[in-house]
Design a protein around this nucleic acid. Sequence first.
DNA 1: GCGCAGGTAGAGT
DNA 2: ACTCTACCTGCG
Length: 293
Amino acid sequence: MHQIKVNHFSLDQIMRSGQCFRMRQTDTYRYEIIAGSRYLIADQQGNLLTLHCNKEEMDFWYDYFDLNTDYGVYIDRLNPNDSYLMKAVAASDGVRILKQDLWEMIVTFLVSQQNHIKRIRRCIELLCNKYGEHISFTNGGIFCPEQANVKPDNKLKCGRHIPEVNGYHTFPRPEAFAGLNEDALLDCNLGYRSKYVVRSARQILEGEVSLEEIEKLPYKKAKEELLKLFGVGEKVADCICLFARHDLDAFPVDTHIRQALDQHYKRGFPNRRYKGFRGVVQQYIFYYELMGS
DNA sequence: GCGCAGGTAGAGT
DNA sequence: ACTCTACCTGCG
C-alpha cells in the first residue's frame, strides 16, 4: 500500500475521460483498474492517492498514471486569453494521458468508432469475459483483503456492472482473436467492428504488422504502421499513439473535436503554441465537450 | 420510427 | 485526391 500526494490528478475524471474502459468506481473513494493482465485497487480523497499494491507493481502503476509528470506545467502554458480553453481546463483539470498497453488500445479504439462510451465499455467487458484469462484473487498472491467487502452496487455512476468478487479477466492477446471467424465478435456486441478486430489480430500474428516495432518507432512511422491494420484510420491511429505510446503531440480529431475547432478556432487551432503536448490539450477539450455543462 | 454515436473501407467520380 | 455510402447496435 502506497500513499502519494498528487496534483492535477483525478481518478474520477480519468475514468470518465474515455481513454480507458476497464476502470470503475467500487465505493465512494475507491476505484478498480484493470490494465492488460494487472489489477489494482486505488483510493483517492482530494490530493491523497492510495495504491493498493506491492512495491514492484508500484513502478508499473506510477508509469501507467503518468505520475512523474507535473501537468501544472502544461496548464501554465495554455493561453490565458483563450477563454474557451480556460473553461475547458477548469472542467477537466484532473485528466491525464495514461500509458496503456498497445494491443489493448488498438482493440479499444477499433471498437470505439461510431460508438458511444457506454457501449464501448460493454463491448470491452464482453471481450475480456469471453476471451481473456480468468485470474483468481486467491491465486498467485494477488488476493486483496478489501475485496471481500466489495458489495455489488448497481447504483454506482459508471456501471450497472457488478464487481467480480472472485477475480477478474485479463485483456485477450491477439492470439485469442486471430483464429476466429470474422463475425465471431458479433456475440460481444461489436457489430461491423468484429472483422476489424479479428483481421487486425491476424495481421499481427502473421507478422505483417509488428507490435514490437511500433513500440520502438518514432511517432510518424509508428502511425504509418498502425494505418496498415484493417479498420485503423487517422483518428484511431492517433488515439493509439496518444494513449499507448504516449505521443503527446498526437491530436486525434473526431466529431466532437471537429465541432469544437470549427466553433472556437475558426482561424485555426494554435498548433505551434502547443507543439509537444497537443494531445493533452485535445483531452481537455474532449472531456469538456463530453462532460461540459 | 429515425437519426446518430470518439470512423473507415471501398467504390465511384 | 476528393466525395459518398454502407456498416452493427442501442439509445433518445
